[in-house]
Amino acid sequence: MIPSESTFNGTYPYAPKFSDAPGFRMHYVDEGSGPVVLCLHGEPTWGYLFRHLVAQLSRTHRVIAPDHMGFGKSETPADRTYWLQDHVDNIEQLVLALDLREIVLVMHDFGGPVGMGLAARHPERVSAVISINGPVPFGQPELGDVLTANAQESPWFSWILRAAQEGRLETVLNETGYNILSTLKLNGFENNALITPTWLEAYGSPFPTPADCRGVSGWAAGFAAGMHQFETPAAEAREMISRLPAMAIWGMEDRTLHGKHFLPLFRSLFPNGKVYELPQTGHYSLEDAPDAIGSLVSRFLGIPSGDKETATQDAYEAY
Results as ranks from 00 to 15, higher is better:
3 P>A: 14
3 P>I: 01
7 T>D: 09
7 T>H: 02
8 F>H: 02
13 P>T: 01
17 K>I: 00
20 D>M: 05
22 P>I: 02
23 G>L: 06
25 R>A: 13
27 H>L: 09
28 Y>W: 06
28 Y>R: 08
40 L>S: 09
40 L>Y: 04
45 T>R: 03
47 G>D: 01
48 Y>Q: 03
54 V>I: 15
55 A>L: 01
65 A>S: 15
68 H>R: 07
70 G>M: 08
73 K>H: 11
73 K>R: 15
94 L>H: 08
94 L>G: 07
101 R>T: 14
116 M>K: 05
116 M>H: 06
116 M>S: 06
117 G>W: 05
118 L>T: 00
122 H>S: 02
126 V>E: 01
128 A>C: 00
145 D>W: 09
147 L>S: 02
151 A>K: 07
155 P>A: 12
156 W>V: 14
161 L>M: 12
161 L>A: 12
162 R>V: 14
163 A>L: 03
165 Q>Y: 06
166 E>M: 13
173 L>G: 06
174 N>K: 09
178 Y>G: 15
179 N>C: 14
179 N>K: 03
185 K>P: 00
185 K>G: 02
185 K>C: 06
190 E>S: 12
190 E>A: 13
191 N>Q: 14
193 A>K: 10
203 Y>P: 02
206 P>G: 02
218 G>K: 08
218 G>Y: 06
221 A>Y: 07
221 A>W: 07
222 G>I: 10
224 A>M: 11
246 A>G: 12
249 I>A: 15
250 W>R: 09
251 G>S: 11
252 M>E: 14
253 E>Q: 14
256 T>Y: 03
257 L>V: 13
258 H>V: 00
265 L>Y: 10
269 L>A: 11
272 N>F: 03
273 G>M: 07
275 V>W: 05
277 E>R: 14
279 P>F: 02
283 H>C: 10
285 S>F: 01
287 E>N: 12
289 A>T: 02
291 D>L: 05
292 A>K: 04
296 L>V: 11
306 G>Q: 00
308 K>N: 03
315 A>K: 13
316 Y>I: 03
319 Y>E: 12
319 Y>P: 12
319 Y>I: 10
